[in-house]
Computed example of a mutant assay.
Amino acid sequence: MTEKKRVTLKDIARELGISVSTASRALNSYQGISEETIKLVKDYAEKHHYIPNSIAVNFRKNRTMTIGMIVPEVVHYYFSSIISGALHAAKKQGYRVLISQTDEKLENEIRACHNMLAGNVDGILISISNETEEVDHIQDFLDEGKAVVQFDKYSEKLKSPIVTSDDLESAYRAVTHLIEKGYRKIAHINGLANVRNSKDRLAGYHKALKEHGLDFDPNWIPHCKDITEEEGFAFAKQLMESSNPPDAIFCITDSVALGAMNYLKQAKIKVPDEVGVMGFSNWKISEVMNPSLSTVEQHGFEVGKMAAEILLKATQNPNEESTNQFTEIKSDLIIRESTQK
């Protein structure tokens, strides 16, 4: 079977007896090209299923119309929402998005950055891994004049726009809610101590306790390494079997909260009557837990959409200064059964 040849701009010009530049201008309805020629060229192109060579067009514009997106996890509900928002914004402006997952490993992040830089993406959206401290591999994009926008987890060593949720304030509101519900001994299963969103949520936790005159036990703040359900289970067990058990647990994510609630159920500790549980991120599973989980909705779609819009604006207006832009998307507290004693 003979492979069907794709119709090119040269084919159209040759068949209609016009120059390639005239055919191109007619397809784009340029001024100075007669209506008759425009119709003739467009009719021929439609009849023969002509598809513009976007690579050649973008090469002339010094753009690939492709952006990179590097995330710690693709299946994580919050990050999948961010990806959806970024894809929505990019598609609206005719851009493609290459997505790479780091699994929270610096090595994978460096490799992804090198591959995207070699692939000549117009810019990148990135949420750094938990292992990332030095950022030379990201700085390489800025050194080549390419746009970089950080989202969620970020490094202050980079001069780039940042889009994130209001982790400190939403953690403060989450713990304040627990206090208002009568809980007084509130533990916080946190993330890695050096990770930005972990630090901000811990700061919000401390702010709420201090504002309400509540003491805390340093042993009430265990730190997850991998932010998993298994760690939530193990730390809840550790907390509740200690000599000074808490009466509420504020968790770094809903997956950790799920593990904590599984332990409490196994130990026959009633939620919320004996122990309240608060999550973070509003995973879909939080609605169907028994009892349903109070949590924080971070509006990941809006974070991704905003980050992509800022990046695309920067790629299209490279001379416009945006390095100091910091955008926080306000989160919402979602109150469900796990804190309603």
Rank of each mutant, 00 (worst) to 15 (best):
S331Q: 05
D332F: 02
G119R: 12
I70D: 09
L9F: 04
I12G: 08
T176E: 15
N58W: 07
W220K: 07
I138V: 12
V288P: 06
A171C: 13
L98S: 00
I189T: 04
F301I: 05
K91A: 04
A208Y: 09
I227N: 10
K330G: 11
F59K: 03
P222R: 01
R60H: 01
A203E: 02
N130Q: 15
A23N: 10
S294T: 05
A187P: 08
K39T: 15
D11A: 09
H48F: 12
E131F: 07
T253V: 06
K330I: 15
G68E: 09
I285A: 13
A187Q: 07
E3R: 14
S322Y: 08
K105N: 08
E156C: 04
D226S: 14
V148W: 06
I55M: 00
G85N: 01
R201T: 08
I33E: 06
V71G: 11
S29W: 08
P318N: 12
V277H: 00
I33D: 04
F216Q: 02
V275D: 10
E169V: 11
A174L: 00
Y172E: 05
D43N: 14
E211W: 12
D200A: 14
K5H: 11
S281D: 09
A90I: 01
L40G: 06
G276N: 14
K284F: 13
E337R: 15
D332L: 03
A89F: 08
